[in-house]
Design a protein around this nucleic acid. Structure first.
Lengths: 234, 234
DNA sequence: TAGTGGTCTAGACCACCTG
DNA sequence: AGGTGGTCTAGACCACTAG
């Protein structure tokens, strides 16, 4: 009791986790406030705050001013998916990267890009070990990224050019399974209707649309990542 | 300048972001250390630390002791995918939830569960508005979760029972697009070979396997989430 | 309105790492 | 060896919100 056993926020976090797992603090239970915990753990309140905030970020605790800190009823799992540059993703897997531009046109942007100004439409295929890896079907808003109009995108992909040129503040991303269209199947060297993994992404700089992209991966592609309290960052 | 314009860590974070976007601090650039920034912003170093750590978590900065803080060369995007309980996911979309147990057997666990002890194999279908929504094909490790053997899982799904009973510390998760097998197609009321979104998940309590599950979603399912510096938490 | 978490401060010590 | 980020402290004030 009131022993100064827990000197750093990670130790405190581990102890809190232990009590949750041991059902000392069951789901829905309101745990002691930060002042009391700080006294029990023999540390400053700021240290307790950091430990609890980290657990709240992980979804295991729900915190509200005045109401206190409760153990989440349904500990929502959270998986952080990293979205690397395609060339890096391929090279990190030890495969040889190649890039092939398919089409490049300037036309009126489709609805998602704001429906107003002109857009640059680029389609390309990224290869890994000479096999098609992913199709990049992209619209770039030429109103917000006018420099894109001068880029040929025949050597450097729009994917790679944009990350070092057009920073974004927000984005939406979605994952789905879809049947390959005839054109996609041809580019990916597979059969029409084959299940393919599709990522749709749109990014903004504040409220200005920058680009929308559909990435259609060759069959067999998987996204893999870790979850859980062991992966807590910050 | 040394003006005390930035009083809280979020304002500092915004200012740092502005300088990165404005190319004042281009990719690869080493930014001033925390002491200098604190003086410039007219605040305590801890406040600068919080702002920079938040940006480092978001992948925009790379920090190392002694080396300092650099702007990331390839600002890796990170999307946080939440993994809710299936019943909640359906009800949150305003649809009616229903659950149907298909099979329940005790047998020797397959390889992923440790290959040693007995396992409980449960397959079930979750419905939304009376349409099949997702197939849950699960193995539960009866060595680590013996209580599962006494659960019928005919009313409450294993998915829901486990989150409030068997906490995990770590997990792996992967997403893929696959063709529906004959059995999956039948349960999902679709055609064999139809592209379906599949989630494979395995969870451990430290190094003890708890459960593996394959979730096969009905055609049309999408995972959707946001990305970017606007979604920074903590 | 009072209790709780959110944050800031000024200072200090430490762990890590580069040069 | 020395500079940098990582963290802790003790105290303070503020913002939010439940009762």
């Amino acid at each position: 009791m009131s022993e100064a056993q827990f000197r750093n926020w990670q130790a405190i976090q581990a102890e809190v986790l232990r009590r949750i797992h041991a059902r000392n603090w069951p789901p829905g239970h309101t745990i002691p406030n930060e002042v009391d915990l700080a006294q029990e753990f023999g540390c400053a309140r700021a240290t307790v705050n950091r430990a609890l905030q980290s657990l709240a970020d992980a979804g295991l605790l729900e915190r509200r001013r005045k109401a206190g800190t409760r153990v989440a009823l349904h500990p929502v799992g959270k998986a952080t998916v990293t979205i690397p540059v395609i060339r890096q993703e391929i090279e990190d897997r030890g495969m040889t990267y190649a890039y092939r531009l398919i089409t490049r046109d300037i036309a009126t942007s489709p609805a998602p890009l704001g429906a107003t100004g002109p857009g640059l439409h680029v389609t390309a295929v990224h290869h890994a070990n000479d096999s098609p890896y992913v199709i990049e079907d992209r619209w770039i808003n030429l109103t917000t990224v006018p420099d894109a109009a001068e880029q040929p995108f025949d050597q450097i992909s729009a994917n790679e050019w944009l990350v070092t040129t057009a920073p974004y503040t927000n984005g939406d991303i979605s994952f789905a399974a879809e049947p390959a269209t005839a054109q996609e199947a041809q580019l990916l060297n597979t059969a029409e209707g084959t299940p393919v993994f599709v990522i749709d992404r749109i990014t903004w700089d504040h409220d200005q649309t920058i680009t929308t992209v559909r990435l259609t991966y060759a069959p067999g592609y998987r996204i893999h990542t870790g979850i859980g309290t062991g992966a807590i960052a910050s």
